[in-house]
Simulated assay, not measured.
Amino acid sequence: MALKRIDVYVDEADLALIKDAATRLGVPEAEIIREGIHRIALAHRVRDEPFVTDEETFDLGGPGAKDSTRAAATGG
């Protein structure tokens, strides 16, 4: 992957957090910043197709009660 250089302005408190994380993990500060940018870019992407189609979903009979949900989750 080719990297492109950009200028970014960072709040001092955020920069301190980045420096601390980089030191703790033993990686360059730039790596922490690149990872953060990548995660946010993935979180805000828009897909052309739905994640699941209507044919791939199940009708569970409407909203369930709290007790039935807990029983289904715990097997009890």
Rank of each mutant, 00 (worst) to 15 (best):
M1G: 14
A2P: 11
K4L: 10
R5C: 02
R5F: 01
R5A: 01
D7C: 09
D7E: 11
V8T: 06
Y9K: 09
V10Q: 03
V10M: 05
D11T: 01
E12L: 11
L15R: 09
K19A: 14
K19V: 12
D20W: 10
A21P: 00
A22Q: 01
T23V: 13
R24F: 04
R24W: 05
L25P: 00
V27R: 04
E29V: 04
E31K: 13
I32M: 04
I33N: 01
G36I: 01
H38S: 05
L42F: 03
L42S: 07
L42D: 03
H44G: 09
H44D: 07
H44A: 12
H44Q: 10
R45F: 02
R45P: 00
V46N: 06
D48V: 14
V52R: 05
T53E: 07
T53S: 12
E55K: 15
E56R: 14
T57S: 09
T57H: 01
F58G: 06
D59I: 13
D59W: 13
L60M: 10
G61P: 01
P63H: 14
P63W: 10
G64K: 15
K66E: 06
K66V: 14
D67V: 15
D67K: 15
R70V: 12
R70A: 14
R70C: 09
A71Y: 04
A72Y: 11
A73G: 03
T74C: 03
G75C: 06
G76C: 07
